[in-house]
């Protein structure tokens, strides 16, 4: 098992089988008012495989796992190839994270990229497969949107938003820095509360045979609103997190470059100094410290440079000739040879 290629193949096979089994199990209960959509926490599997190993692994987990799930349930996957393709695309799109420096997330931008990819990977593929259903004439367009695409997107996105940060933390793909930590802290609880409220509404009406189509549509519109609230929440949180953490990151960058002895091109921190809070005080103290360190360093460098200038000075020659010209020195020099202990003594 020392070969990483072989090891990864084993992981892939395990993920495919797990995804197939989970799809088979979840496929036995459809969402309220739906004849196809179901609750699928397992969407995290292809998404995670995509982020961790790349788009190909994500795609294979989604597409192959989905097809196998149908086979387990005794359904021929070939006539409904577009659903397997959609599941594959879900893992594939999430896998693009690595091309946007978001495979291992340490920054706010990385977090935003991941959330955007989670929303895209749970929406675009199923918009496509629901569209194919409509084109094939299996469902009318209105129903295709409200009872196929919308429930799938809402529930898949819900599980991705709730579970993926936990998976990424566990796999150390999400690193708790000041920006990522604050962003996660402000968004995670809120999104869990909002989504669970929606999930609660859904569970309440689940199994009611007589649930009218209008009531079901309202349910998914409510879900869509919940998702929109969360997306707006993400944007607002990102704005505030950037405002709070940007100065800290600027100070850190300044400290880093000073540690490396580079005083040029350091962020000026001028905006920061104007602030009346702790960060403003930190920036002011930092600026004072910086100018002191810089001054000291320059003085020391100048001292070493003076070495050349000072010892060649005329004054030195004058002093030497004064000593060397004295009678005492002349007498001493003539005797120095006798005074000094010789090699052979």
């Amino acid at each position: 098992m020392s070969n990483p290629g072989r090891r990864n193949t084993v992981y892939l096979l395990a993920a495919v089988l797990w995804y197939a089994l989970a799809n088979y199990l979840s496929g036995r209960h459809f969402l309220p008012g739906c004849s196809f959509a179901e609750l699928r926490p397992q969407v995290c599997l292809p998404i995670f495989m995509g982020i961790y190993f790349g788009p190909l692994f994500g795609f294979v987990t989604g597409a192959l796992g989905d097809s196998l799930g149908y086979l387990m349930a005794g359904t021929n996957p070939l006539p409904i190839w577009h659903w397997a393709l959609a599941n594959g695309l879900m893992g594939g799109i999430a896998g693009l994270a690595r091309y946007f420096h978001a495979r291992r997330v340490t920054t706010l931008k990385g977090m935003q990229t991941v959330y955007l990819l989670l929303l895209l990977s749970t929406s675009l593929p199923f918009l496509f497969s629901s569209g194919v259903e409509v084109l094939l004439g299996h469902v009318p367009p209105g129903k295709g949107f409200s009872f196929l695409f919308l429930p799938i997107f809402i529930t898949d996105a819900m599980f991705a938003i709730i579970l993926m940060p936990l998976c990424m933390l566990a796999a150390r793909l999400l690193v708790m820095t000041i920006p990522t930590g604050i962003f996660l802290m402000t968004t995670y609880l809120t999104s869990v509360v909002v989504l669970c409220t929606f999930a609660g509404s859904m569970i309440t009406v689940w199994g009611r045979q007589a649930l009218s189509a209008i009531a079901a549509r309202d349910l998914y519109m409510l879900g869509m609103m919940a998702l929109l609230v969360i997306i707006v929440g993400f944007a607002v949180a990102a704005y505030f997190v950037r405002r709070i953490t940007h100065p800290i990151l600027e100070l850190t960058a300044a400290a880093d470059s000073i540690a490396q002895g580079q005083y040029e091109g350091i962020p000026q921190l001028n905006d920061l100094k104007e602030r009346s809070d702790e960060l403003g005080r930190l920036a002011s103290a930092f600026k004072v410290m910086l100018s002191m360190v810089r001054k000291r360093e320059e003085t020391l460098k100048a001292e070493v440079r003076q070495l050349h200038i000072e010892i060649d000075s005329a004054h030195q020659k004058q002093e030497v000739s004064k000593i060397v010209g004295s009678d005492y020195f002349k007498a001493l020099k003539s005797r120095a040879d006798q005074l000094r202990i010789k090699e052979h003594e």
Binding site: Q306, Q316, I323
Partner: peptide
């Protein structure tokens, strides 16, 4: 500074 010159002498 002072030692450089004195040492030179």
């Amino acid at each position: 500074y002072q030692d450089y010159e004195g040492t030179g002498i």
